[in-house]
């Protein structure tokens, strides 16, 4: 760049201070939350597949959920976990919950507490068992293939799991009729490899938007039964269960941020092209 020359508008735009972009993002998130627009939500087949499977299983079927995320992914995954769990409770299925990420334990506990307020008759040790966290990641999945009560001798609340009524019917991964795992990383791969492939239990993934593309090949290979991807997926599930909640209300914000980034990329490219043209013009003038 010519040092004596004052930078043109195009140049100044392209070297915009990051903080301006950050401010715009903050506004794009906050304004739609304060003034909702109610944009339409279309349900995708991969989310419907999860809903349909839970809906069509006979009441009392065994469902395993794994909470493999931590508070960082809470805004994205918590709404979908709650929505799916609510659906499972509403249908009267038996539910076992494991946690592979240590900081996910309290999130799962919180979700259970909130649902207990909605469904007071939902009984611990009979309708559900919250197995809590066990160290080991993939090894835990291999181990629950043998037995829940051996891998998790005590549940989250400190009760011995061995004698629980639910454990009598549902004591290992292979006895599950369906699995839904909530993933912020690649532990979903382990559930597919060591869970569904070994024990032949269909599995669905509730995943953050950033890791969702990683799971699409599994969907086509029918190793995954469905994907609930990010906040959008959660909003779709809320629409299907007809209980609009957090995810639905955040959809407008997400749309706005996507639109903002869209505009930023398009403008940055147009201005970059203009800069090239400008440089060429200056070079010609200089000659």
């Amino acid at each position: 760049m010519d040092k004596e020359r004052k930078p043109s508008f195009v140049e100044r735009f392209l070297q915009m201070d990051r903080r301006i972009i950050y401010t715009l993002v903050a506004l794009a998130v906050a304004i739609p939350l304060l003034f909702p627009m109610g944009l339409p939500i279309k349900v995708t087949p991969e989310v419907r597949s999860v809903y349909d499977t839970i809906e069509n299983l006979p009441a009392g079927s065994n469902i395993l959920m794994s909470v493999d995320f931590d508070p960082a992914s809470q805004p994205e995954l918590y709404p979908m976990m709650k929505s799916v769990m609510r659906h499972v409770v509403r249908k009267g299925h038996k539910l076992a919950i494991t946690v592979l990420w240590p900081n996910g334990v309290n999130l799962a506990a919180q979700c259970i507490e909130e649902l207990k307020l909605e469904f007071p008759e939902w009984t611990n040790t009979v309708d559900y068992v919250f197995l809590g966290y066990q160290v080991g990641g993939a090894i835990v999945i291999m181990s629950v293939g043998n037995s829940f009560s051996e891998t998790f001798p005590k549940d989250y609340y400190g009760q011995s799991t061995a004698g629980m009524p639910i454990i009598k019917e549902f004591n290992k991964l292979g006895e599950a009729d369906y699995m839904v795992m909530f993933e912020a990383g690649n532990s979903g791969d382990w559930w597919i490899v060591y869970g569904t492939e070994v024990h032949d239990v269909p599995v669905a993934g509730g995943v953050t938007a950033v890791v969702a593309p990683q799971y699409y090949p599994y969907l086509q290979a029918k190793q995954l039964n469905g994907i609930i991807g990010g906040l959008k997926g959660a909003a779709e599930y809320e629409k299907l269960t007809e209980v609009p909640a957090l995810a639905t209300s955040a959809m407008d914000s997400q749309s706005m941020v996507h639109a903002l980034i869209f505009v930023a990329i398009v403008l940055a490219n147009i201005f970059a092209l203009m800069l090239v043209a400008e440089k060429r013009r200056r070079a010609q003038e200089g000659r």
Binding site: T125, G158, S160, A162, G163, M164, P165, K168
Partner: peptide
């Protein structure tokens, strides 16, 4: 050793 929070008594075992 496992106390029921509601009743304050020891939890009845499911393992009979």
């Amino acid at each position: 050793g496992v106390i029921d929070e509601l009743t304050g008594e020891e939890v009845v075992s499911q393992k009979f």
